[in-house]
């Protein structure tokens, strides 16, 4: 993947302000490539990192990263063919069983993921799934609430990367486990909304093995000149397709061996 930046600093700041406005005031905007058709994935990451710089300057704390678009189901749903990454901050975290407001979101969707908490720093390029497992403190189940700021969830890779991979909220929960005690490839997951099963799958849906997604993330970070610090919370990408939620909905994700994660949505 080329990380070439073609946009000027002014354009990057301008796009960042557009994304930031849409994220903080919860409104949809057209995808950025409508105005900048030549925009690259590298440009998208430049916008994302500018967004992070602004959030951190305002006192948000980065807690980790997420891999996105890592399953065939998601890539097909979104019409892209390469995974992406986005940063996670403390402001996006919600506790298990929380009532999550949708009034500050555009069109939220939920998906089930295996999350990793790292005990050692990881540096790419060349990071492998085995290296990820060796550097993992524990794994846990998580639900990501994604929220594309683009109208109709219609986007391309440069636009979604600029929008921080559609990151919005996340809930970690369930049961912490040592990765070595589990077969992380075959964990089954069931997503229920209001008591009805709405999505299902097994963890191999994520690039064949969730640790592969984390390795991919570390290698993208290397291209951006960064590493994955010890202590990071990392989500490996949706096992199932993403399911829309609205106020009044109650969601529970049930994972083989990892317990469950639940939340409900309110105005």
């Amino acid at each position: 993947m080329s990380m070439e930046i073609t946009l000027s600093r002014e354009d990057i700041v301008r796009l960042c302000e557009r994304v930031e406005g849409a994220q903080t005031r919860a409104y949809a905007i057209p995808k950025l490539t409508d105005e900048y058709p030549g925009m690259t994935i590298g440009d998208g990451y430049a916008v994302q990192l500018e967004l992070r710089r602004r959030f951190l300057a305002r006192g948000h704390k980065q807690v980790g990263w997420k891999a996105g678009l890592t399953s065939k189901a998601k890539m097909k749903q979104m019409g892209v063919d390469v995974p992406s990454i986005g940063f996670l901050t403390d402001r996006m975290a919600r506790p298990e069983n929380a009532a999550i407001s949708t009034s500050d979101l555009v069109h939220p969707r939920v998906e089930c993921e295996v999350a990793f908490v790292m005990k050692d720093e990881l540096t790419g390029p060349g990071c492998t799934a085995a290296a990820v497992l060796a550097a993992t403190d524990y794994v846990l189940p998580a639900v990501e609430i994604i929220d594309s700021r683009f109208s109709g969830f219609k986007f391309d890779l440069p636009s979604v990367v600029a929008d921080n991979g559609s990151s919005a909220r996340f809930v970690g929960g369930g049961r912490a486990r040592y990765a070595k005690d589990l077969d992380l490839r075959t964990l089954g997951v069931v997503l229920e909304k209001n008591g009805e099963i709405v999505a299902m799958g097994a963890s191999a849906a994520v690039l064949g093995h969730p640790a592969e997604a984390i390795a991919m993330l570390v290698n993208i970070l290397a291209e951006l000149g960064e590493s994955l610090p010890a202590g990071s919370f990392v989500m490996s990408g949706g096992i199932t397709e993403a399911i829309a939620v609205k106020p009044g909905d109650s969601v529970i994700a049930r994972f083989q061996e990892l317990g469950s994660v639940s939340m409900r949505f309110v105005e």
């Binding site: 065939k72 089954g188 997951v189 069931v190 099963i197 299902m200 799958g201 097994a202 963890s203 191999a204 849906a205 064949g208 096992i239 049930r254 083989q256």
Partner: peptide, 10 residues
């Protein structure tokens, strides 16, 4: 190659 995934609850 990975073809598809599922779960018992299906």
């Amino acid at each position: 190659e990975l073809h598809s995934t599922g779960v018992g609850a299906a």
